[in-house]
Design a protein around this nucleic acid. Structure first.
Length: 211
DNA sequence: ATCCCGAGGG
DNA sequence: CCCTCTGGAT
């Protein structure tokens, strides 16, 4: 396991590598961030960024999206994959925003997770990136990295989330998950981790790491 | 040809 | 727990 000092070093190195992860997201309004986060499941940023400008031009508000024909939504988001599920989910999500919250994205984890298409990962991205709340985002990148680094032994994402909150200083929570996601895509990849170029190599417990 | 890996549903 | 949904990367 990791000492307090090692954990702080990990946070510092990740901050240096990904200084502005959140500012890229903060300029978006919460509705757009929520919908684009739902769309980002299982696909690259490029795929999502390719469809969201047109999507939000045509359907700029929860009310507009809630009334959209499902086929129109599907046509707009097709390149992101799983487009049947995602189209149904984002429309139902928009409708729930209108019905339950007057078209305003709620701040609470319980309210967010209760929205169609929104799980804990998406909810925590919105909480941390749109509302600046202290939340640790845990997706499979974070899970994999946390286990490789030796920050947790858990497998369950919720246990990992609480484990990280217990070990990492609260000031770091908000950016940690987002930074790990970028780090996980570029360096600490699932299939072929780029250990030779990894800034965390010396702090990592991953047994199969390659020099 | 197989893996990626979020959310919902069985 | 298990499976399914899609396009892209490898």
């Amino acid at each position: 396991m990791k000492s307090k000092n090692e954990i702080q070093q990990i946070c510092d190195i990740l901050r240096k590598a990904y200084p502005d992860v959140k500012t890229q997201l903060l300029h978006r309004n919460p509705f757009e961030l929520l919908i684009s986060t739902i769309l980002s499941a299982q696909c690259t940023d490029r795929q999502v960024n390719g469809v969201t400008p047109a999507l939000f031009r045509v359907y700029p508000t929860p009310d507009a999206l809630a009334r959209a024909p499902i086929k129109k939504i599907e046509a707009l988001i097709r390149p992101t994959g799983f487009f049947h599920n995602k189209a149904r989910n984002i429309r139902a999500c928009a409708a729930a925003l209108v019905d339950r919250y007057g078209g305003v994205v709620p701040h609470g984890i319980e309210e967010l997770v209760a929205l169609p298409g929104v799980g804990r990962k998406t909810a925590n991205v919105v909480r941390s990136a749109a509302f600046g709340q202290a939340a640790v985002v845990v997706d499979t990148h974070v899970k994999r990295i946390s286990r490789r680094l030796g920050l947790t032994r858990h497998e369950d994402p919720v246990k990992i989330e609480f484990d990280l909150m217990a070990k990492v200083p609260e000031a770091e929570w908000n950016d940690l998950g987002l930074r790990m996601i970028y780090f996980g895509r570029e360096t600490c990849r699932a299939r072929k981790p780029d250990c030779p170029n990894c800034p965390l190599f010396d702090l990592c417990d991953y047994p199969e790491k390659t020099a």
